[in-house]
Amino acid sequence: MLVVQDVGKKYGDFTALHNINLQFGNGIFGLLAPNGAGKTTLIKMLVTLISPTTGDIFYQGQPIKMLGQSYREQVGYLPQHFGYYKHSTPKQYLSYLAALEGMDKQTVASRIDEVLDMVALSDVKNKKMRKFSGGMIQRVGIAQALLSDPKIIVLDEPTAGLDPKERARFRHMLSELARNRIIIISTHIVSDIESIANEIIMIKNNVISYKDSVTNICATLSGKVFETTMTYEDFIEFRKSYVTLAEKQEQGKMIVRFVADEIAESFWKSVEPQLEDVFLVEYAHENTSGGNK
């Protein structure tokens, strides 16, 4: 069990996070918020890159600051931007990281082959990474996070650069791994986690706004999400009064998905709310142009 207890983080007068309380057991947890909301700050505290200003983080009942290296050995981490030497091969890169981590030399080669197979890079394990696409590099990053067979896997924007097929493979892999591990995925891409996360965590105004299952979070908008068809001119006026969630043009008309609290008009069609609907409503008035604190 990984427990975040009364954790806050300040940078001078700026409060990045305030009074965060979370518990993580085995499974997949989606940390969902726009850029600048505090996702990366929380992740960096979980992997001990920075320390909380207030509160503590505990693993198996012990403060991680006291566990030190023994805790870090249990953590696999993929940062949003990770460093690599472009003239090395995936096998060389992972061998280097294994040596830094002091992994057993007798098992390193087989483990490297195993994780490269998991991310579908076995056929290029001896090719220089300077020729790799962005998606292939990202898969190398995922492989390094899995290398030491960690009990806690923390991934910051892990699907950046992956194509739809690679994303599907990634989701399947995480579902398999999550049976006996804690997996925390920080992202602002709802589709990456909607179908696989046991719980979704949303951060707003430096605090936790949601920590629940996808089903329960979506139920908060039950009976409030609609679709209707209108002209483009009517749509321009319509969106001044309603939070629009999606729109598309079809046969000269606008099909609009939106949220409304009042009694539905007869020409509105009630639809099932999705996680992205909640995300858009929750952050409708947020300024998401900030950094990653």
Rank of each mutant, 00 (worst) to 15 (best):
D104G: 06
I183V: 14
I203R: 08
E282V: 01
I196F: 08
S148L: 07
L245K: 09
A109N: 13
T229P: 01
L100W: 02
D104K: 12
Q5E: 15
T89M: 05
V207H: 12
V154F: 00
L121V: 01
S110M: 07
D117K: 13
I142H: 05
A246C: 00
V7L: 12
K211S: 13
T220W: 00
F170V: 07
Y77R: 02
N126R: 12
R179I: 06
Q62I: 09
F267H: 15
G38P: 07
A99D: 14
S110Q: 15
V124E: 11
L67Q: 12
T15W: 10
L174A: 04
S209I: 12
Y242F: 14
E276A: 04
D56S: 13
F132V: 11
L49G: 02
H87R: 13
V256P: 08
A160G: 11
N216F: 00
M202L: 13
K39D: 07
H172Y: 07
T231N: 11
E247F: 10
M1S: 11
F279W: 08
K128F: 00
L67D: 04
L162W: 06
S51H: 13
I153E: 04
K9E: 02
M129W: 02
L2T: 08
K165W: 00
S241V: 09
Y84M: 14
Q249G: 06
S95I: 01
V243E: 04
L46V: 06
G61E: 10
F238I: 13
S241H: 12
P273D: 11
N26T: 13
F267N: 15
L245I: 09
A197R: 11
D6T: 12
S133H: 05
K151M: 06
D234M: 06
A168G: 01
R167M: 11
G291N: 12
K131I: 02
L221N: 02
V259M: 14
N19I: 01
F267V: 10
E101G: 14
A260K: 12
I185H: 07
K224R: 13
V3F: 00
F235K: 09
I208S: 03
D113R: 10
F24L: 08
G223P: 01
G8W: 03
T48L: 08
K10P: 01
D192T: 08
V124D: 08
T288C: 02
T229V: 14
L22I: 09
I20E: 05
G25S: 14
M1V: 09
P79V: 03
F58V: 06
M136N: 09
W268Y: 04
F132K: 10
W268K: 03
H188V: 02
Y85P: 01
L116Y: 04
Y242T: 03
N205P: 01
H188N: 10
T54D: 08
A246Q: 14
T288F: 00
D163G: 12
I255M: 11
G12R: 13
R130G: 13
R111F: 00
L155F: 02
Q138S: 11
F14W: 01
N19T: 06
S88H: 12
L67G: 01
F14S: 09
L22K: 07
E176W: 00
Y77C: 02
G8E: 05
I184Q: 05
S213W: 04
A109T: 13
T54Y: 03
N26D: 14
V259T: 08
N198T: 10
I208M: 07
K10L: 06
V47Q: 06
S133I: 09
N206M: 06
K10F: 00
K105F: 04
